[in-house]
Computed example of a mutant assay.
Amino acid sequence: MVDSVLIEGLEVETVVGVYDWERRINQCLLVDLEMAWDNRVPGASDDVSDALDYAAVSERVTACLKGLQPKLLERGAEVLAGELQEVFGVTWLRLTLRKPGAVPAAQAVGVRIERGQR
Rank of each mutant, 00 (worst) to 15 (best):
residue 3 D to V: 06
residue 4 S to H: 15
residue 4 S to R: 12
residue 4 S to F: 14
residue 5 V to Y: 08
residue 6 L to K: 10
residue 7 I to P: 13
residue 8 E to T: 15
residue 8 E to S: 15
residue 8 E to F: 13
residue 9 G to P: 10
residue 9 G to H: 12
residue 10 L to T: 13
residue 11 E to Q: 14
residue 13 E to I: 06
residue 14 T to L: 05
residue 14 T to E: 04
residue 15 V to C: 05
residue 16 V to L: 10
residue 17 G to E: 00
residue 18 V to E: 02
residue 19 Y to Q: 08
residue 19 Y to N: 08
residue 19 Y to E: 10
residue 21 W to I: 00
residue 21 W to Q: 01
residue 22 E to C: 00
residue 23 R to Y: 00
residue 24 R to M: 07
residue 25 I to E: 00
residue 26 N to M: 09
residue 28 C to K: 11
residue 28 C to I: 11
residue 29 L to V: 04
residue 30 L to Y: 13
residue 30 L to E: 12
residue 31 V to G: 09
residue 31 V to S: 09
residue 31 V to I: 09
residue 32 D to K: 14
residue 32 D to I: 09
residue 33 L to M: 05
residue 33 L to D: 08
residue 34 E to Q: 13
residue 35 M to H: 06
residue 36 A to L: 12
residue 37 W to G: 11
residue 39 N to G: 07
residue 39 N to W: 12
residue 39 N to S: 14
residue 41 V to G: 08
residue 42 P to F: 06
residue 42 P to T: 02
residue 43 G to M: 04
residue 44 A to L: 04
residue 45 S to P: 00
residue 46 D to T: 09
residue 49 S to V: 10
residue 49 S to W: 06
residue 50 D to S: 06
residue 51 A to G: 05
residue 51 A to H: 07
residue 52 L to E: 03
residue 53 D to M: 06
residue 53 D to S: 09
residue 54 Y to C: 11
residue 55 A to Y: 15
residue 56 A to E: 14
residue 57 V to M: 10
residue 57 V to C: 10
residue 58 S to T: 13
residue 59 E to V: 12
residue 59 E to Y: 11
residue 59 E to P: 13
residue 60 R to H: 13
residue 61 V to W: 14
residue 61 V to M: 15
residue 61 V to K: 09
residue 63 A to K: 11
residue 65 L to T: 00
residue 65 L to W: 04
residue 65 L to Y: 04
residue 67 G to L: 05
residue 67 G to M: 03
residue 69 Q to H: 08
residue 70 P to D: 07
residue 70 P to S: 04
residue 71 K to E: 15
residue 72 L to E: 06
residue 72 L to G: 07
residue 73 L to N: 10
residue 74 E to G: 07
residue 75 R to C: 06
residue 75 R to I: 04
residue 76 G to I: 02
residue 76 G to F: 01
residue 79 V to C: 02
residue 79 V to D: 00
residue 80 L to W: 02
residue 80 L to V: 01
residue 80 L to F: 03
residue 81 A to K: 03
residue 83 E to D: 06
residue 84 L to F: 00
residue 84 L to M: 01
residue 85 Q to P: 04
residue 85 Q to W: 03
residue 86 E to V: 00
residue 87 V to D: 02
residue 87 V to S: 01
residue 88 F to C: 01
residue 88 F to P: 01
residue 88 F to N: 03
residue 90 V to I: 11
residue 90 V to H: 02
residue 91 T to P: 09
residue 92 W to G: 12
residue 94 R to K: 15
residue 96 T to L: 13
residue 96 T to C: 14
residue 97 L to Q: 02
residue 99 K to H: 10
residue 100 P to M: 09
residue 100 P to C: 10
residue 101 G to M: 04
residue 102 A to K: 03
residue 103 V to D: 08
residue 103 V to G: 05
residue 105 A to V: 05
residue 105 A to P: 01
residue 106 A to P: 05
residue 106 A to T: 08
residue 107 Q to V: 15
residue 107 Q to A: 15
residue 108 A to S: 14
residue 108 A to K: 10
residue 109 V to S: 06
residue 109 V to W: 03
residue 109 V to P: 09
residue 109 V to Q: 07
residue 110 G to D: 11
residue 112 R to L: 10
residue 113 I to N: 06
residue 113 I to G: 06
residue 114 E to D: 08
residue 115 R to F: 08
residue 115 R to T: 05
residue 116 G to A: 07
residue 116 G to P: 08
residue 117 Q to R: 14
residue 118 R to I: 12
